[in-house]
Design a protein around this nucleic acid. Structure first.
Length: 377
DNA sequence: AATTCGGGGTG
DNA sequence: CACCCAGAATT
């Protein structure tokens, strides 16, 4: 704290805050969660915003609050309904934890958010950042925050060249965030302003230092290091996966499956799919697989995994999508008939309008749109 | 301390 | 395609 003040010419943290807040008052975006001090609404927005961009969250946030206006209604909901409203946002664990936390808040805290950092952090899905956000935005309590935007802003203000992910750097960032907090109100606005600065001016690439209201406090700017700081993590390496998906139709119904516990997309619906990575890499190293090989592999994989025997399969579509460190090639097949002894109960036959209402994975929704455009009938 | 959770928007 | 995102929990 003193380090920063010493560095920042003769001006104090107070002047820093004033300059930042003046800029914020003029340039802040109009975001739906800035119109409320309801800790519940703020909690929903912060959870949705975890690792998810503002533009993506907007519509989800409004729809979710409309469906679950308060913590009691969320606690009383079916998990499937919560997942349905979350479908497409990703990180579905967040939705399940949100639901679990809502139940805890109703059962153990009489529906009130405990206005203490520690108790908030005991709730599933609420870590240090989210707890600080709820406290400062809802109650204007002096709680520091560090997330993607503020982390970058702090790193540049302090000219921290070490990787921000390192534990020691993290500690510095939280200490610095703490040192910026006002003691007599205004934490909420300050934290919002810090994030907004990171989002609009102190951007990851090509930060607009000329327009920065606090450039005179910035060590990176003074040293011409604004493009070097914060240092970037090493490039991610991806693992290639190959999945096969089947579209099976019985009159107006299509076969869909709910992902079981313990795997990816738990609780979300999709068209039946299997992993064929191993077989495919063994069969065709690098070359584009022929349709015949794809079809046979798909057939064998569904037989092995679900004891499903598919007839007359044809390859109809290919999707590519990313899941964290994986890059998945998804080959889609249409099977006109299948034989099986007994359909496991995670499967269902449903018409397209009913499938539309399920909590589908993103690929599930893509496939649904694709099928609707196909004139299968 | 590193890994694992999705998915979409943007250049 | 590469990069990035209002992180948290688990190992």
């Amino acid at each position: 704290m003193t380090k920063f003040i010493d560095m920042a010419t003769t001006l104090s943290v107070r002047s820093f805050r004033t300059a930042l807040l003046r800029w914020f008052a003029k340039h802040q975006r109009d975001l739906p969660w800035r119109h409320t001090h309801d800790p519940y609404a703020i909690w929903i927005s912060e959870t949705m915003l975890q690792q998810t961009q503002v533009a993506t969250v907007r519509s989800y946030y409004e729809r979710f609050l409309e469906r679950f206006p308060n913590v009691w209604q969320l606690a009383d909901a079916e998990e499937a309904e919560v997942l349905r409203l979350w479908a497409g946002l990703g990180y579905y664990r967040r939705a399940r934890q949100l639901h679990a936390a809502a139940k805890q808040i109703c059962d153990q805290h009489e529906g009130q958010f405990p206005p203490e950092l520690e108790k908030l952090q005991h709730l599933p899905g609420i870590g240090r950042y989210t707890a600080g956000a709820i406290l400062s935005f809802a109650y204007d309590a002096p709680a520091p925050i560090v997330e993607a935007n503020t982390s970058r802003v702090y790193c540049r203000l302090l000219a921290l060249t070490a990787p921000p992910s390192q534990a020691a750097t993290q500690k510095e960032l939280w200490t610095f965030a703490e040192s910026l907090q006002p003691t007599s109100g205004g934490s909420g606005a300050l934290n919002q302003a810090l994030m907004e600065l990171g989002s609009l001016v102190c951007t990851p690439q090509a930060p607009q230092c000329a327009d920065c209201p606090v450039k005179k406090y910035c060590r990176a700017y003074a040293a011409g290091l604004e493009n070097e700081v914060p240092c970037r993590p090493a490039k991610q390496k991806f693992t290639a996966l190959h999945h096969a998906l089947i579209i099976v139709q019985k009159q107006k119904d299509f076969l869909v499956r709910r992902n079981p516990a313990g795997g990816w997309w738990e609780g979300l619906w999709d068209f039946p799919r299997v992993d064929i990575t191993e077989t495919m890499t063994a069969l065709v190293s690098k070359k584009t697989p022929t349709e015949r090989i794809l079809v046979e592999t798909c057939q064998a994989a569904f037989q092995a995994k679900f004891d499903l025997h598919l007839d007359s399969i044809s390859h109809v579509h290919t999707l590519r999508h990313g899941v964290t460190r994986y890059r998945i090639r998804l080959d889609c097949f249409r099977a006109t008939s299948l034989r099986l002894k007994k359909l496991p109960n995670e499967f269902q036959w449903l018409p397209l309008p009913a499938i539309e209402l399920l909590g589908l994975t993103s690929t599930g929704r893509k496939m649904l749109r694709w099928i609707s455009a196909q004139d299968f009938s």
